[in-house]
C-alpha cells in the first residue's frame, strides 16, 4: 500500500468513525480523572473501576437478559468501588495512590476469579449471552455524504461521552459545587476555612469519577466488544489520566486529548500495513503527554514568576510613593 492510499484512508469516513469508537472508552474515564484531579487527588483506580463495571455489566445483562439492567448494575458497581476507594482514602487515611493500586489489583484478580467461577473460563465471557447497547442511526443526518457516515450508526456511549463532557464542564464551571470542588483542589486549607467540607467534596468527586469511568468500562464490554475479556481495559485507565494532563486539566481539552490518543491508536493500525512499526507510532501520544506535562509546568512557573515580579514591583512603587510623602 502506498502512502497516498493510507492518507486517503485516514481521511475516510470509516476511519474517523473508528477514531470516535476507539476514543470513547478513553474520554469517559478521562473525565473521571479530571474531576478527581481538580479536587486534589489522583485517581489511579480508573483502570480497576472500568474493569469491574465492564464485568458487572456483562454478567448482569447475561443473567437478567436485559441490557438496561446490565448498564445500571455496571454503573452502580463502579460507584461502589470508588466509594471503597474514597472510604479507605478519606476515612482510613490510606494514601490514595496505594489504595488505587490495591483497587486495581483487586479488580484484575477479582474479575478473573469470578469469571472462572461463573463460566469455567479464565479468558473471556463469550459462553454467556450478554447484550450490547444499541447503535443510533440519525434519520436525516445519515444521508449527508461524509458526516453521516462518521456520526450516524455510532453506539449510544459515543453520544453519552460527548453529553457527559458538556455536563462535566457545566458542573465544574457553572455550579457552586463545581467551584467548591476546584477550591478544595487548589487549596484545601483555605476551602476548609471558607466552610467547605473538604472530605465530603473529595468523596463526591471520587463517586462522580467512578460514575464516569464505569461508562468507559461498559463501553469496552457492551459496545466495543460484546463480551468481557480478562484485563480488557489494557491500560486505558492510565491513558485517561494522561489525557487529563495533555488536555490542560479542562473538560473539552481532556476530550480533545482523549480523541488524539484514539486517533494515534487507529493510525497505528493503518500504518501497520505500510510496514511502519505500529509500536513506534503508538509511543507518540505518550511522548507528547510528557512534553505537554513539561510545557504545562513551565508555563505555571512562568506565571508564578510573573506574579512575584509584579508583586515586588508594586511594593517597590508603594514604598517609593511612601517615601515621597
Amino acid at each position: 500500500m502506498s502512502f497516498d492510499v493510507v492518507l486517503r484512508s485516514i481521511f475516510s469516513a470509516a476511519f474517523l468513525a473508528s477514531v470516535l469508537r476507539i476514543s470513547t472508552p478513553l474520554i469517559l474515564p478521562a473525565l473521571g480523572g479530571l474531576i478527581t484531579d481538580l479536587s486534589g487527588a489522583i485517581n489511579i483506580a480508573l483502570e480497576g473501576i472500568m474493569l469491574v463495571s465492564a464485568f458487572t455489566g456483562v454478567i448482569v445483562s447475561a443473567y437478567s437478559g436485559s441490557v438496561g439492567l446490565g448498564v445500571i448494575a455496571g454503573v452502580i458497581s463502579g460507584i461502589l468501588i470508588s466509594y471503597v476507594l474514597g472510604w479507605f482514602h478519606l476515612h482510613m487515611k490510606t494514601d490514595i495512590i496505594l489504595a488505587g493500586i490495591a483497587i486495581n489489583i483487586l479488580a484484575t484478580g477479582g474479575t478473573i476469579f469470578l469469571l472462572f467461577v461463573l463460566t469455567g473460563d479464565k479468558g473471556n465471557s463469550q459462553s454467556l449471552a450478554s447484550g450490547t447497547v444499541p447503535n443510533i442511526h440519525l434519520p436525516f443526518i445519515q444521508d449527508i455524504p461524509f458526516i453521516g457516515r462518521v456520526i450516524s450508526g455510532q453506539h449510544v456511549f459515543v453520544w453519552i461521552a460527548f453529553l457527559l463532557t458538556w455536563l462535566v464542564a457545566v458542573y465544574l464551571y457553572r455550579t457552586p459545587w463545581g467551584s467548591h470542588l476546584r477550591a478544595v483542589g487548589e487549596n484545601p486549607d483555605a476551602a476548609e476555612t471558607m466552610g467547605i467540607n473538604v472530605n465530603r467534596t473529595r468523596m463526591i468527586a471520587l463517586l462522580i469519577s467512578g460514575f464516569l469511568a464505569s461508562f468507559g468500562g461498559l463501553t469496552m464490554s457492551m459496545a466495543y466488544l460484546s463480551f468481557f475479556q480478562r484485563e480488557m481495559t489494557a491500560g486505558r485507565g492510565f491513558i485517561a489520566l494522561a489525557a487529563v494532563y495533555l488536555g490542560g486539566r479542562k473538560p473539552w481539552g481532556t476530550l480533545a486529548a482523549a480523541i488524539l490518543f484514539g486517533f494515534a491508536d487507529a493510525l497505528s493500525h493503518q500504518l501497520g500495513s505500510l510496514r511502519v512499526p505500529s509500536q513506534l507510532v503508538q509511543t507518540i501520544p505518550y511522548v507528547v503527554t510528557i512534553l505537554a506535562l513539561v510545557i504545562y509546568n513551565l508555563r505555571e512557573q512562568a506565571i508564578k514568576r510573573d506574579r512575584q515580579r509584579k508583586f515586588y514591583e508594586q511594593q517597590q512603587a508603594e514604598m517609593g510613593s511612601g517615601g515621597g510623602l
Binding site: 479507605f88 476515612h91 482510613m92 487515611k93 490510606t94 494514601d95 496505594l98 489504595a99 493500586i101 490495591a102 483497587i103 489489583i105 483487586l106 484484575t108 484478580g109 477479582g110 478473573i112 476469579f113 472462572f116 479464565k122
Partner: peptide, 22 residues
Amino acid sequence: VSREMVLVIQAIIILLVTAERV
C-alpha cells in the same frame, strides 16, 4: 481454585497495611 485469589489477598493486604487508622 484459580491463582487470581492471591491478587484479592494482596489487595486486602495493601489496604490494611497502608490504612493508617486500622
